[in-house]
Amino acid sequence: MTQEQLQASRCAGCGIPLHSEDPKKPGFVPASSLDKEEAICQRCFRIKHYSEASSVTVDQDEFLKLLGGIASTNSLVVHIVDLFDFQGSLISGLQRFVGNNPVLLVVNKIDLLPPVTNWNRLRNWVQKQASEEGLKVVDVVLCSARRNIGFDRVVEAVNSLRQNKDVYVVGATNVGKSTLINRLISDYSDLKRELTVSRYPGTTLDAVHIPLDDGKSIIDTPGIVYSWRMSEIIPRKDLAALLPDKPLKPLTYQLNEKQTLFFGGLARFDFVEGERQSFTAYLSSGLPVHRTKLERADELYEQHRGVMLSPPSLEDLESMPAWTRHRLRIPANSKQDIFISGIGWIQTNGKTGATVDVHAPRGIKVMLRESIL
């Protein structure tokens, strides 16, 4: 089968147009399977033969087209978010696409927080943050895909809320969506039946329906790619340094005004104005932190970016957006986090307030939020 013929054909499992160019994109089929009469994409193959869903990704526009059909269904929507990158992975506009369908918010990677975390307070924090982003949720479940913590509660919540409905699973990339779907498949699905397809008007992207024993389906949607997350713009070889795989060890710095912290070569934090106070960074242990005076920060960056101040490497810096400055004013007597999507957050601890600047690649989400801890 030629590439032209391949592009004109569709997956026998989910109906998506097939291609053999990029394994990360929906519809990929290995070249060795091109001549099969009823070829199925790699994602359907893994679901059908191994009871495993694999991650595929799409950009924001394609994803929003896919979401457009959910409001007209009678479904449970399971939205998975990354606790480490909460504001970066939350689909804030989800409510207008799902209509009156209930939304279960599953918060993954709780194993990164200290064991002494007040989990009830954290659930309340999650509900408040989601509400501020315009998302109404019927329940919040905390879990860890990596450590297999809390997944029984996720399955119980789905079972309780589903009430003979289809289940749409949505989320950004790298939030643990495939792990949850695989668990739901093992608990609910009879994979002897064929996969089915759901197509929505105006889009070439198809969601994969995984049949359940009661005739309903888990609908596996591709992971949405958000350009405001640091994990989407850095080279893949640097992800291990950026994404933590063990509990975060808080790094507390007593800073005078006019002092600076560099987080590798990915971001810079300037304490511009305020009384001496402490700032606590929660980030991956693979990302080195360097401290200097604000007056030397520009010179230090020019001399050491890509080498001492890394990741990324000097070569990779050329393909990344230039830094932009975010000025943030922290109110007195308030516990706030300075959130940098994909890097983590800096908890402020002072009672007198402060003015800070955060320098990060253009487009990366930087914001103040109520402290998570």
Rank of each mutant, 00 (worst) to 15 (best):
Q60R: 15
V29L: 07
D59G: 12
K48P: 02
S33C: 12
Q42V: 09
Q42M: 12
R46A: 08
Q60N: 11
S33I: 01
S32A: 15
Y50Q: 14
E62H: 11
D35V: 07
F63I: 05
I47N: 00
P30C: 11
Q60W: 13
K65L: 03
A39R: 01
G68I: 05
K36H: 14
H49A: 08
E37M: 07
D61Y: 14
R43W: 03
S54V: 15
D61K: 15
V29G: 02
V58R: 09
T57M: 08
E62G: 13
S32N: 10
A31P: 04
L34H: 12
L66R: 00
K65A: 06
K36Y: 13
S32C: 11
E62W: 11
G68T: 06
K36W: 11
E38W: 10
H49I: 05
F63C: 05
Y50P: 08
E38I: 06
S32H: 12
D59R: 13
S33V: 02
V29P: 04
Q60A: 13
G27R: 07
C41Q: 00
Q60E: 15
D61M: 14
L64S: 11
I40T: 02
F45R: 06
R43C: 03
H49S: 08
Q42T: 12
L66F: 04
V56P: 02
D35A: 12
K48Y: 08
S55P: 11
L67C: 11
C41M: 03
E38T: 10
E38R: 14
I40Y: 01
F45W: 08
E52P: 05
K65Q: 10
E38D: 15
R43I: 03
S33E: 11
Q60L: 13
F45G: 01
F63L: 06
C44K: 02
D59P: 09
L34P: 08
L64M: 14
V29A: 06
R43F: 05
E62S: 15
E37H: 07
K65D: 02
C41I: 06
V58G: 05
H49V: 06
S55A: 15
G68C: 01
H49E: 00
F63Y: 13
R46T: 12
F63E: 03
Q60Y: 14
A31H: 07
F63A: 03
K36C: 11
Q60F: 13
S54R: 07
A53K: 01
C44W: 01
S55I: 12
D59T: 10
I40D: 00
I47H: 01
C41K: 04
S33A: 15
G27A: 09
F28M: 04
A53E: 14
T57N: 10
D59A: 07
S54I: 14
R43T: 09
L64C: 10
S32M: 13
S55F: 08
F45E: 00
L34M: 14
L64H: 15
C41S: 04
I47G: 00
F28N: 03
V56E: 05
E38C: 09
D61A: 15
Y50N: 12
V58W: 03
V56A: 00
Q42E: 15
D59C: 08
S51V: 02
L64N: 13
D59I: 05
S55K: 04
R46Y: 09
L34E: 07
A31E: 03
I47L: 01
S32P: 01
Q60C: 09
A39Y: 00
A39N: 00
I40S: 00
F45P: 04
P30L: 13
E62C: 10
R43G: 07
S55W: 08
F28L: 02
Y50H: 15
F28S: 00
S55C: 12
